[in-house]
Every structure is written in structure tokens, then in C-alpha cells.
Design a protein around this nucleic acid. Sequence first.
DNA 1: GCGGCGCTACTACCT
DNA 2: ACAGGTAGTAGCGCCGCG
Length: 770
Amino acid sequence: MEFKLWPLDITYGVVGGVAEVRIFAIGEGGERVTVTDRSFKPYFYVECADCVGKLPREVEKVEVVERKFFGQPRQFLKVSTRLPEHVKTLRETFASMPGVVGVYEADIRYYMRYLIDAGVLPCSWNLAEVREVGKLGSTLVYEVEKWLGVVGGFPPQLRVLAFDIEVYNERGTPDPARDPVVMAAVKTSNGGEEVFEAVGTDDKSVLRNFANFVREYDPDVIVGYNNNGFDWPYLTERAKAVGVSLKVDRLGGQPQSGVYGHWSVIGRANVDLYNIVEEFSEIKVKTLDRVAEYFGVMKRGERVLIPGHKIYEYWRERREVLRQYVLDDVKSTYGLGERLLPFLIELSSVSGLPLDQVAAASVGNRVEWMLLRYAHRFGEVAPNRVEREYEPYKGAIVLTPKPGLYSDVLVLDFTSMYPNIMIRYNLSPDTYVQGDGWLGEIHIAPEVGHKFRASPPGFFPTVLKTLIELRKAVREEMKRYPVTSPQYRILDERQKALKIMANAIYGYTGWVGARWYKREVAESVTAFGRAIMRDVVERARELDISVIYGDTDSLFVKSGGDVERLMRYVEEKYGIEVKIDKDYKKLLFTEAKKRYAGLLKDGRVDIVGFEVVRGDWCELAKEIQLKVLEIILHSRDVQEAKRNVITYVKREIEKLRSYNFEVDNLIIWKTLDKELGEYKSRPPHLHAALILKQRGYRVGRGVTIGYVIVKGGEKVSNRAMPYIFVNAREIDVDYYINHQIIPAAVRIGQVVGVRESDFKTGEKSLLDFI
DNA sequence: GCGGCGCTACTACCT
DNA sequence: ACAGGTAGTAGCGCCGCG
């Protein structure tokens, strides 16, 4: 029978010496099913010239096949093996055989190989010819006979479960061997909400009740916040320590740790929302409460907040508050899931990576898995991952702004410039021409001189064209639905997923870790980009349009001139659509690139690059900088603005001097980019991190440290203290005045003539006394 | 021994 | 582990200084 299914998770097992692929999926009627296939043999490719050698017995079959390699037709041996694990061992065996030139695609995981070859897309509707073979627990099992392709449609109703745990520990980072899980909270998409609690310090019931709940609710998707980094490893360790089994997957097993810190719960998609939140650079401090507020899920002011190091106190003395806290956390997590899952589902479908992996996978890997699918479709054998040396190359042009206040400025944006360049000039690893051998039509990149065949269309340009066309079709389809409909929302997430994947391809070509790494391609893309930018600036000059600033693919121009003509010029000459991205009434530049701020025609204040938008300046300094900016943007004349700025900032400085502030507003947040031992110098946040470590906290790469500068004679670094250990009276207010408030205020204020000395008149320097 | 200077380390930002 | 370009702070070593 024909069956339409939406794959959620995939795994395999070996039964009777045969690999069996198992796809956990949802049918059209909402039924949960398992689809199996025992017919697919693992394989890899071998390229050889007169290969000799005895075939190992793990080899099932060898065929000579026609494939392409970087666009060139070639013959390969397709070596199929009996079991997935044989691929790894045979890879070595074949590589060392006399006559073997290369072994390819031997590092592709079996179940991914299956999805790619069968053309099965996770988180999409796939049509298959199946037959029913029985039941596994309560779900039907089908055996697939033939895959009939991907069909369109919207995702089914998913059962989602969010969870969160709280651990009792008196200092530092909790230790599963010692510290009990005193609370576990769950929230489900059918409205269920529960908190499981320990009895005293006995947490066996928490673990059991949690596992029972998961099994009974039987979720398709499990979401957590840092569950890969904390909850799952902690729960499984703790379960082992107290002798409880944590059987939560769909085959009666425990969660398993996979590669790169990802945890899998077979049959379900375990998604760590923190993974995806990490990609939102506009969120500076990524604690659950702040992230939930950012996404409009729950306001921080309307929920219970307990710092991690005080949880044990609340468990001992104010348990009902802790209960509310864990509930607020799980509600936030659930809400985040509602907000983020639709995008992840589409990203899974576009990249071809199963849902539970797509959030954890890096951008480069998502692109690579997508490319592997297209390569298979085009009959291309994928190049191997090889270790390469990093070679820098020139990037985009950034114009130098003239400092000052401008009025009526338009920002022109060249849409999808890099993808368009790649398509137009056919830039791809397989179209790259080395030397002068090629006699057909070629494109030559400016400055760098790399050559590319003009036809036929290369691998990357073809993929890009496909993605752009798909996106266009999705955007067309969106018009058929009301903006507020769920369908519209899903299609919008789909077009976003297609867009970000297309935009990531240029970066991928310049990434040394990429299979299809080709520096010459990346280098040519930026070279064409620079040439276009220079040409458009020149054209603007000819048209008497004044150019104020530009960065990569945007141009800031004075409105009033024939801007439309300039836009048409770019569209006609380069085939790149130009859109007016922003329309400023007033715009402010200092002498710095990548930093500007302005008042948009719609009344919004827009700030780019300045301290206000940076996470590593304290709230107070940012708040003051914003005010200074607003004073300037809203005043009619420069002198008045200058006076008002000075009066305002002086007042703020006085407040600080008289200890009229909140410590929270003075916290400086910085992320550790390395492990503590790898630092060559001792910056402030490292100092603060070392203090945290000394007091039992686990800190290292990726952790964001919040510190304040306290009094003392030594250098700044030695006075950086984790804010949780500091009282207001210990704060070094002079540091904040001279190194946070004044620099932030002067940076913007300088445009109307405000100088550092305007704020230091009250203070007599030693020189004055002499 | 110390202040000033310039370079390096480091982070976060922009497109 | 998608890219390069950029601003800015603090650390740190070096230099000169009778």
C-alpha cells in the first residue's frame, strides 16, 4: 500500500546479521509508526587504476559505476559491505591496496547514507510503498518496499514535551554523584504541567516519575534548555548513581550521548533549544529567563528568578517558591520550543539532517549535509574531508565615513549579493580552471585573476539557483494564506531556512574544514563583490549622488538625487536586485567604520556597532550612551545638544559618585573563548573566571562571565570580581566613570563637540595644585 | 623603578 | 569550526631615563 509519512527520527539495528533501518515517523492520520528497511547495504566508493588484491569477506558486492568528480565523469568501484561497521574497517583495507587512488564517502553514517540514497527527507512528507509487518509496542511497523519521493504539505500536530530539573547543591557546580535532583518539571502540548519532587534528599522518585511521565505521554519532541549540556548527562549519571533506570526512548532504552555533545532519545527528537539560541548574536546574555523575555514568551518581571547558587536555600526554606521557579522555567522552555521548533523543522527539511541533530549541528555541517544530498542527486562523488592549512584571503570593501550628522540618507542593499555573484559568474569548485588549458568561454575574477568555465552551470551555482527558486515558490505560496494563519507562519519559516542556507554557501567555500573547500572560489566571490561596490560608487559619483558610507553590499546615499537610476543600474548591469533597506531622517557617524546611529523616518532610533548594542559594556554606560544619542538626534542645534549632553552626563556621574546605583547595571559580560589554561594574557574576565573556578564553579570555553570592577590599588584585571560576590560599597566608581560612562558618552557626544575634559572639570588634577 | 609607547591579546561587532 | 573587516580595551614588554 501507499503510505505518506513524516520522518521524525532515524536509527538502525542489526538483526540476524542484517542491518535494519528504522524510521520513526508520523502518518497522515496522525498515527505513530515505524518504517523499516532491511534491503539497504552500506557502501563507499573506490577509485583505482588496475587495482589488485583479494576481496575481504566483509565485502558484499563490487560494481563499476559511472560518477562525476568535480564535474568530470569518472569510473568508480562501488563497494557494498555486509554491515555498517565494516565500512570503517574496509576503508583502510582498500586505501592501502596497490593501485587505489582514493576511497570516498566512507565516512558517511549509515542512516544518513540511507536517507540520502532513498531521497527521504526528515520533517517532510514522504510517499512510500509499504507493507504492514506487525507492531512494536503500540505503534504499527511497516516495511518499506519503495520510496516514491517527497510531497509537499505542512507538518503534523506534534506531541511536544518540555522539561527542566533543579539540583540541590550548596556550592559550585552540582555533582551527580552527590547532589540529588530535587525537582523535575514537565510541560506538554496537551496542556499537562507537573512538578516531581524529591522526598528529603531521596530523588529516586523524581527520576522514576519523570521517566514514567515521558513514557506515558510518549512525546515526539523533547525540548530543554541546555539539556544536551546539563539535564541529560546529569539525569543519566544520577540515575546510575542511585540505581534507577531512565527508560524514556521509544525502544525502551535510556538517552544516549552521541557525537559533539548531542544526546539522542531513540524514536523522539531531543532538541536542545540552547543550541539554536547560541546563534542569536543579538541576545547577549543567554540565560533562559532573558531569552524567554527576548522572544516574548515570559517577562522576567512576571516570574520567579532564583540564582543557581541559591537553589538549595529555597529547597530548604522556601520550597513553594522553588516550585514556582521550576514551573516558570519549564513554561519558558516550552514557549521557546513553540517559537523555535517551526524554524528547526524547516531547517531539518532543507538540510536533510534529522530534527534532533539540526539544532546541534554547526552551520558548516548543515550546509555540507545539504550539499551531500544534491551531490548524490547529480551523480557527484563527494570529496573527502582533509586537513588543510588556513590561508587568509581578502574580503569585502568598507568605505570610510566622514564624521558628522547627516539628514535624509537612504541605505541601498544589494540583495543576496554573494549568491548572485556565484550564479552569475558560475563560481564553483568544479568550474574552476587551473592554468590555460580551457579554451571555452571563461569568467575571470578581478584582482585575483582566477578563471571559471562559463558553462555548464557548476555544482554550487546549480544548488543556489535551486534554493532561490524554491524560496521564490514558497514566497508565492505564502500569498495564498492570511498573514496570521499557521500555514503562513510555516511557509515563512521555510523561506527563511532556504535563505540562510543559500547565504551560508559562500562562507562554506572558504571554510578549511569543508569537503568542497576552494579558496579560489571564496576569493573570487569577494573580488567580484569589491569590483561591483567600486563600480557602483563610481556610478553614483557620475549621477551626482553623494555616497556617505558603504559596507560589503550596502551603500548609504543622500536622498534627493536620482537614486532610482542608480538602483536600476545595479539591477541591469549585475542582475542584483537593489532594495531600500533603511530611510534615515538623521544619521550620525564618527570616524569609525561599522558604527553609526540614526533616526529613521518611522521614528525609530537605529543603532549599529556602538557600545549600546554591545554585550561587553555595562548597562549603565549603554543607557547613558543611548540617552546622549537621543538628545543629539532630537535637538535642533548643535550647541544646545552639547549643553544638554554635558548636563545630563554630569548628573549621571554624580549619581555614581554618591553610590546611587544598582550593581546589576554595572556588570560587564564577556565570554570565555578558550579554556582557562589556554590564555596568553590575563584579561579581566579571565581573572573573574578563575575566582569562580576556585569557588567550585565549572567555567571554561563558551561560558559568559559577569564581573564588576572593585576598589583596590592594582590593575583593572585583578579587580574584576564575579558580580555575585560583590556589594555596592566595594565597587570602584572611578573605574566606571572613566572607563565606561565617559568613553561611551564621548563616543557619540564628540559629534556635537563634547570632549572628555567636559566631564573632568570638577576634579582637580595633581598638575592644577602644582 | 617607573612612565609612556606600541604591539599583542582578546572580544564583540558588521555585512 | 561558514567568511573577512573593524573598533576598542587591557595586558605586557620595551625603552629611556645620568
